[in-house]
Design a protein around this nucleic acid. Sequence first.
DNA 1: CCTTCAAATCTGTTATAACAAATACCGGTG
DNA 2: CACCGGTATTTGTTATAACAGATTTGAAGG
Lengths: 226, 226
Amino acid sequence: MIAALEGIEPIARKETLGMIVREELRSALMAGRFQPGQKLTIRAVASALNVSLTPAREALYNLMAEGILESGANGTIFVPKLDEAQIVELTKIRVNLEGLAAREALPHLTDADIDALTEINAEVCKSDEDKDFSKLMSQNWRFHFGIYGRSDMPTLLRIIESCWLKMGSYLNVIYPDYGEIGTGLENHQQILKALRARDADRLCDTIRVDIEQSSGYLIEMIRSAK
Amino acid sequence: MIAALEGIEPIARKETLGMIVREELRSALMAGRFQPGQKLTIRAVASALNVSLTPAREALYNLMAEGILESGANGTIFVPKLDEAQIVELTKIRVNLEGLAAREALPHLTDADIDALTEINAEVCKSDEDKDFSKLMSQNWRFHFGIYGRSDMPTLLRIIESCWLKMGSYLNVIYPDYGEIGTGLENHQQILKALRARDADRLCDTIRVDIEQSSGYLIEMIRSAK
DNA sequence: CCTTCAAATCTGTTATAACAAATACCGGTG
DNA sequence: CACCGGTATTTGTTATAACAGATTTGAAGG
C-alpha cells in the first residue's frame, strides 16, 4: 500500500454516450431551443448526434423519468406543454424548495460569495441592456444556483434544477417580449439586500416574489396565446 | 368524424417491458427487499425477470435518473446507502413538500375522505398489533398519500414519492425493531385531529413531527450500526 | 374534388452480438 | 505467507437487426 495514495477518491463517472446525449438535450432545453409540445423522436436525436438508437433512447427516457420530458399515448416523446394549472403547481413547489435552499445556504454564504453574486447580477443587468437573452438566461441561472448551491443539499439542488428544466422551453417565450424585465432585475437587488442583511425570512420572501412574478408573466403569455 | 367521440383522450401508455421492470424494482425497493448499498447488475435484473439487457438497463437507468438508485465509479448501479447528512437533507425536503401537499389537500378533503383515512389508520394500528410490518408499511403509504393525493398536484406527488423511495431500503431497517412505534401511531392520530379541525398550520406541524421522529429514529439506527 | 383503402414509411420496442474495461481467480515467486 | 502478474470471467456500453404498430402517402374509385 502506498501511503501517499491514502484517502484518494476513485475518479467518478466515465462519460458514456448516453450521458453526453442527455446533457446535450438538457442544455438545449435550458437554452429554450425546443418549442413547447415539440415531438422528439429517438431516431432524430440519434442521427442529429451521430449515435445509435440505444444511447439516444437512454437519454430521452432518463429525462422522461425525471419528468423533464413527457410521453404520449404510444410512446412518442415530446417537450411538455404546460397549462396554467401546471405552472401554478410548479410555482408553488419552486417557492417552497428554493426558499428552503436559500434559507439553508444563508449561513454558509460568505461576504465574498455575496460580492461574487453581486458581480454576476451586474452581468445579468448588462445582458439585459444588450438584449442578449441567451446570455441573460444563463447568467440568471448562475445567480440563483450560486445561492442555492451553498445550501450543501445536493438532492434538493437536483429537484430544483429539474423544476427549472420543466419550464425551460418557455423561457424563450418569456424573455424576448418581457417588457417589464426591469422588475426581475429589481427583484435580484432585493435578494442581494436580504442576503447582505442576513435576513432569512426576507430572503425567502424576495425569492418568492421573483418566482411568482415571472410565473405570473408566463401565465399571462399563455392566456393571451390561447 | 363522430361527434360523440370529440375531446376523448387516447388511452395512455401501453406497458412496455422497461416500465414493467421499473415498477417491479420500485415495489421491491418500497417493500425494503434490497439491502442499502446492494449492487444491482443489469444482467442479474434481466435474468431475474427473464428479459433482455435493454429493458433491464432502461429500468435501472430511469431509477438512477430519478435519484432512486445511484451509480458508482464505473457504471455499477447500487441501492443508495444513506449517511446522516443525506437523511437530514431528505427530512428537510420532505417536511417542506409533504407540508405543502397536505396544506393544498386540506380544502379538497371531504368529511368522507377523512373518515376513510381514519379507517386506513385503524388498519395501520391493526397491522402494528399483528407485527405485520410489510402490511404496515403499505398501509402507512396509503395513509400519507391518501392525504397528499388530494392536493391535485401530480408533479409534487411524484417528487414526494421519489423521496420516499430513496429511503425505501431503510424502511425494513426501521420497522422490525421500532420499539416506540406507538409514537408513530400517535402522530397519525394527531394528523387526523388536525384534519378534522381543518387547521392547516397544525396539520403541517403534525406531519413535520411524524417525519422528523421517524427520521430521528433512523439516524439513531445508522449511528448505532456504525 | 373528396373519400377510401392499401402499400410504403416512420417509429418505438426488444433481443442479440461485439467490444472494452473492470474484476476475480489462480498459480508462481520472493 | 504475502505479493505480483496474467488469464478468465464478469459487467457495462453500444450498434444493429428484426419486429409490430402507427402514420403517412398515393392512387384508384365514387
